[in-house]
Simulated scan of single mutants.
Amino acid sequence: MAAAGISLSFSAIGQTSNGGKVNVSSARYLASNFEGFRFRISLLCHSVRVGVPSTASPSIIHCMSTANDVPTVSETKSNFLKAYKRPIPSVYNTVLQELIVQQHLMRYKRTHRYDAVFALGFVTVYDQLMEGYPSDEDRDAIFQAYINALKEDPQQYRDDAQKLEEWARAQTSSSLVEFPSRDGEIEAMLKDTAERAGGKGNFSYSRFFAVGLFRLLELANATEPTVLEKLCAALNINKRSVDRDLDVYRNMLSKLVQAKELLKEYVDREKKKREERSESQRANEAIKKCLGEY
């Protein structure tokens, strides 16, 4: 679990040197250099593996998408833009647009069913991406608009992510993987996931799910590699897929840090240019004043 020590701090980047917000056109210029990072985001979201049951209960059918109610990708993106109309700095917007396209494809798979671990994974990625955004209020509003555009409940995402995080903090390496033999709200959620992943219901594996698993391990301080193996076995998840997807996640975080550092360098450089121009202007004014007095 080498990624456990990774942390992101964007607070120095989300603002200009004088406390103002990042200029949108400047951020757009920088975003053109982030194609490698966008590729990593695409990899993070694109892999979706499906377990298809032979039969489905009425409650599961209710959660499945049908051909009649599936919006297009452009409709989902349009719903997002209608719900949040303020400009988003391109260093963030470029990634958000990539994410919402890929998550749309996950959301409207025939076998899709909402999953709390998936929600935890998405919330983790979103919060790390948007950490240090110029406005906390706008960051929350963007989250609301994003999830609503997918016709899901943003409050459910937040609530389930919080419940899983609180539960994981109270676990040990041993108790984390012993959920099948215990009772409780979170244990019931995980048992349901395990049953569906084992072929008794609809389940679509994605890399957001892998990130959710990683977050559980991280909060429980379960750093031993064997814990992930046992947790995957208990949930009927392929550990090789999780290992591969966590590698992509770690690489994504690295690219994200580089992108933020690039933006910070640009902001600092522009600040220095403004200061130099200001000093030159003051010097010229002083010279003119002296010549006028002479």
Rank of each mutant, 00 (worst) to 15 (best):
residue 38 R to Y: 00
residue 233 A to D: 07
residue 117 V to I: 10
residue 129 L to D: 07
residue 282 R to V: 01
residue 81 L to F: 04
residue 290 C to G: 06
residue 1 M to A: 13
residue 252 M to A: 10
residue 212 G to Y: 00
residue 248 V to H: 05
residue 250 R to Y: 11
residue 32 S to N: 13
residue 71 P to H: 12
residue 148 N to K: 14
residue 133 Y to Q: 04
residue 181 S to F: 05
residue 266 Y to T: 13
residue 252 M to R: 04
residue 166 E to C: 05
residue 255 K to G: 10
residue 20 G to V: 02
residue 220 A to M: 01
residue 36 G to F: 00
residue 170 A to I: 09
residue 244 R to D: 13
residue 137 E to R: 06
residue 24 V to E: 06
residue 120 L to C: 02
residue 213 L to S: 07
residue 123 V to R: 08
residue 35 E to G: 07
residue 2 A to E: 06
residue 1 M to V: 11
residue 93 N to D: 10
residue 131 E to K: 03
residue 276 E to R: 14
residue 184 G to A: 04
residue 134 P to C: 04
residue 224 E to Q: 04
residue 98 E to G: 08
residue 265 E to K: 13
residue 97 Q to M: 09
residue 113 R to G: 02
residue 43 L to N: 13
residue 286 A to I: 13
residue 156 Q to H: 06
residue 34 F to G: 12
residue 247 D to Y: 09
residue 50 V to W: 00
residue 293 E to W: 14
residue 45 C to W: 09
residue 118 F to C: 02
residue 177 V to C: 12
residue 246 L to I: 01
residue 261 E to H: 14
residue 211 V to C: 01
residue 53 P to M: 03
residue 193 T to Y: 01
residue 60 I to Y: 09
residue 288 K to W: 10
residue 205 Y to P: 07
residue 82 K to P: 06
residue 31 A to C: 05
residue 271 K to L: 01
residue 146 Y to P: 03
residue 156 Q to V: 12
residue 268 D to K: 03
residue 213 L to K: 12
residue 166 E to I: 00
residue 155 Q to A: 12
residue 242 V to H: 03
residue 256 L to V: 09
residue 271 K to E: 14
residue 200 K to G: 08
residue 99 L to Q: 07
residue 169 R to I: 00
residue 272 K to W: 12
residue 265 E to Y: 11
residue 2 A to Q: 06
residue 14 G to L: 10
residue 30 L to G: 08
residue 89 P to L: 05
residue 51 G to N: 14
residue 260 K to T: 02
residue 272 K to E: 15
residue 228 L to W: 00
residue 228 L to T: 08
residue 136 D to K: 15
residue 75 E to D: 15
residue 266 Y to H: 10
residue 119 A to I: 00
residue 177 V to Q: 05
residue 116 A to W: 07
residue 202 N to S: 14
residue 194 A to D: 12
residue 35 E to C: 03
residue 78 S to N: 00
